[in-house]
């Protein structure tokens, strides 16, 4: 039987761990709410941009997309895995890293692969064995469109300069607080979608229609990138909230078990003492 003092110390330490995990859960819940709100907020912009672009490119028959849509022979691939900077969020990050490694070992076995990580966790794991050109984990510290657009612009420039022939994004897409889905998305070259021709008003174009399309494509790419980062950000907090909730529950269970053990041990000590007193008294009577 473990002694009383040991059990007491353990109960205390489990209790304080529980407080920490519970606090982390609360913090993540608040951050998750904010992250979800900002996804909501960007929707009008993203939708309008897509609508404009679809409307414009529908009645232009020329090959569109400019430099960003150029299909080349795939020799160099850039993978962009997005993870969190901090841990304690369940399998979220290891799923991304696993998927990245799977792509390197299977899909792009014969190509040269560079990695640009977003988030410290991916950087730490992948930089040991693979060529990581940069890490942009800092964008999570100040998550604004401007900062994200800068990273996206850099990647787009590299593609246009033919440094890479294909850019793949790997990130967690937010479904709900408990479920995140690993998504692998081709960022560049642009997959040309066939848009159904919609009714187009007789617009004045300033400057020309083609120029507007060329201007809008990078914007829509950056918006896509920003949306992806936002998604990953919400996923991180959702995952952390869920895993911290589980941790709190486990701690609660453990604490209850230890308390039971403690009471049993205490009972045993008291029984022992009574037994001693009674048998002592019996002996004196004798």
């Amino acid at each position: 039987m473990a002694n009383l003092k040991d059990i007491r110390t353990r109960i205390q330490s489990v209790g304080s761990t529980m407080q920490i995990t519970n606090a982390m859960k609360m913090v993540s819940a608040a951050k998750l709410k904010k992250a979800q709100e900002s996804i909501e907020k960007m929707r009008p912009y993203a939708e309008k941009l897509t609508e404009l672009l679809a409307g414009l490119s529908a009645n232009l028959d020329a090959e569109l997309g400019g430099d960003y849509a150029e299909q080349r022979e795939i020799n160099k691939v850039l993978l962009v895995p997005v993870t969190s900077n901090r841990g304690l969020c369940g399998a979220l990050n290891s799923n991304i890293i696993k998927q990245t490694l799977r792509l390197i070992e299977n899909d792009y076995k014969s190509q040269e692969v560079d990695i640009l990580t977003i988030g410290k966790k991916a950087y730490e794991q992948l930089s040991k064995k693979h060529k990581v050109v940069a890490n942009h984990g800092e964008i999570f510290d100040d998550l604004t469109y401007e900062n994200v657009a800068k990273v996206a612009q850099k990647i787009m420039d590299d593609f246009v300069e033919k440094k890479y022939d294909k850019v793949i994004l790997i990130y967690n897409s937010f479904k709900n607080a408990a479920t995140q889905i690993v998504k692998t998305e081709q960022f560049l070259p642009i997959m040309t979608e066939t848009t159904e021709s919609n009714v187009v008003l007789d617009y004045i174009y300033e400057p020309s229609q083609a120029e507007i399309v060329l201007e809008l494509i990078p914007k829509s790419l950056k918006t896509q990138f920003y949306k992806m980062i936002r998604d990953a950000w919400a996923s991180e907090h959702g995952a952390r909230m869920t895993s911290m909730h589980k941790a709190t529950d486990n701690a609660k269970e453990m604490k209850a078990e230890l308390t039971l053990q403690y009471n049993k041990a205490r009972q045993a000590v008291i029984t022992g003492e009574i037994l001693e007193i009674v048998s002592g008294a019996e002996a004196l009577k004798g």
Binding site: L52, L56, L201, D202, Y203, I204, Y205, E206, P207, E211, I212, E215
Partner: peptide, 11 residues
């Protein structure tokens, strides 16, 4: 642009 401006898209 004022009221009743013709439809326009501009950068």
């Amino acid at each position: 642009m004022l009221n009743n401006h013709a439809p326009i898209i501009a950068i």
